Amino acid sequence: MREAGLSVGLYTSPHLEDVRERIRVDGRKISRAAVAEFVADIETYATERAADGASPTFFETVTALALREFDRQEVDVAVLEVGIGGRLDATSVVDPVASAVTAVTLEHTDVLGDTVAEIARDLAAVAPADAPLITAATDDALAGIHEEVDDVLTVGAGAGNLDGNGEGDATDNGGPDDPDVRVAYGGREGLEGAVTVETPARTVGTRLPLLGAHQARNAGVATALVEQLLDRPGLAVVSDDVPDATAALERGMRNAHWPGRFEVMGRDPLVVLDGAHNPGGCETLVEVL
């Protein structure tokens, strides 16, 4: 979206070194001055709530900071990553125009449930009111999402890859045979991965500086989200305002950077930094290695 000339706010977690990493506008971290001003503004309120035994959590507080910053910066689009689940997450105060569940693994089981199906049902609460919920989930997780949401747009490799030669699939292992958005992973080219995404509207082919077949599915989810925004009536983000959306998507993917996600820090010897911290993330890390 930034490659198309839009101003984009990004809220993610956790951070690696600096809490300001969680809140970015057009790639720039929120300023120290903005954080300090926010803390001063909410200090009395937070102290009073704490005295009543209802202090805002760290994540709730930082979410409020992010939303205020995006409002102040008048971003065209705000991208919010949930913290824990979807139903009761702090980000649920927002009514989304497009939402996605990338994948589901066992995480925060004390809050969300003991199975991927239970967790998926909770995550499905992020679905927008009048648009499909986009997901690359598979197997029981996909079934759980379908239990909660009628309108689901699926992303996956399907029964075969895009060119039909049986090579380079982003294997779904339980995904739909005929997904709405099809993806293929063409393998590594140095420290980049070749990715193709096919939607009813376009075919996007590029190289990602993020390795692994799972990143092809993530690219498919991102493409579907952007297309929902392009088609959304009444928003500033409409097709006529975004020239050559396919080229912008390809440039955006090529310039993607995600510190701590199979980040190659050195090549001789090979040193990789990855923050995998749940069963699904660890399995994916092993597959990429």
Rank of each mutant, 00 (worst) to 15 (best):
A100G: 02
L88E: 12
E107V: 04
A222V: 07
D130W: 04
V226P: 01
G220E: 03
A129P: 00
L123D: 14
T154G: 02
D52M: 14
D41G: 07
V286S: 12
V152E: 12
G166C: 13
G281P: 02
G193S: 06
E118R: 11
D18T: 09
R72N: 12
E69G: 05
D268E: 14
R32L: 13
P269Y: 10
D18Q: 08
L230E: 00
G164Y: 03
R28I: 08
A184P: 01
T196G: 10
T105F: 06
V75R: 08
V238D: 11
R254G: 04
A216N: 04
G9H: 13
I145G: 14
D18M: 08
R217K: 09
R207E: 06
A137E: 03
E60G: 10
A157Q: 10
L235A: 09
E81T: 02
G175N: 10
A36F: 00
A34G: 04
V116F: 11
A248W: 11
T115G: 11
S239E: 15
V62P: 02
V286T: 06
F262K: 03
H257S: 09
R20W: 08
T138E: 11
L80N: 01
A120W: 14
T171F: 15
D76G: 01
V264W: 07
V183N: 01
A124H: 14
R32F: 13
G166H: 10
V272L: 13
M1R: 01
L289A: 13
F58V: 14
G86E: 12
V183T: 04
V116T: 10
T115H: 07
E21M: 05
S239R: 15
L273A: 14
D139C: 08
A245D: 10
V25S: 08
V204D: 07
A78I: 02
G193L: 09
D231E: 07
N161M: 05
A245W: 11
L123R: 12
Y185E: 12
F59W: 12
E69L: 09
A213C: 07
E3A: 14
